[in-house]
Amino acid sequence: MIITNIETVPGRTIVEHYGIVQGSTVRAKHVGVDCVAGCQNTFGGELKGYSQLLEESRNEAMDRMIKQAQQLGANAIVNVRFGTSMITQGASEILAYGTAVRLE
């Protein structure tokens, strides 16, 4: 599965469009991570636990998007965009979407 965030896959020809595919996940913070982050919060800077959590969630959202594209018979996703939004205090949605296509 080739994934890009430009309209094409350079050097390859798109032969078929399957429309939009998307994957998302909603994650809440973990109490353990939250305690550590609470301390780091006082001094500011990066919250490593959360960085990792969001990284994992984003990979999961992308996996779901890829699965959807595979079901359609696509072998690439172009024009991928990400979105993050706070659903409630302490829980966020991670979204990934793009256009599923078949390359020659």
Binding site: G11, A37, Q40, N41, F43, G44, L47
Partner: peptide, 24 residues
Amino acid sequence: FNDDDVERAWLVHGTVVVSGDYFK
């Protein structure tokens, strides 16, 4: 870039979560 020169294209991302300190 020239499309014909490309060997491979793939998506990359980087992410960081930060907070401000109490004083700030």
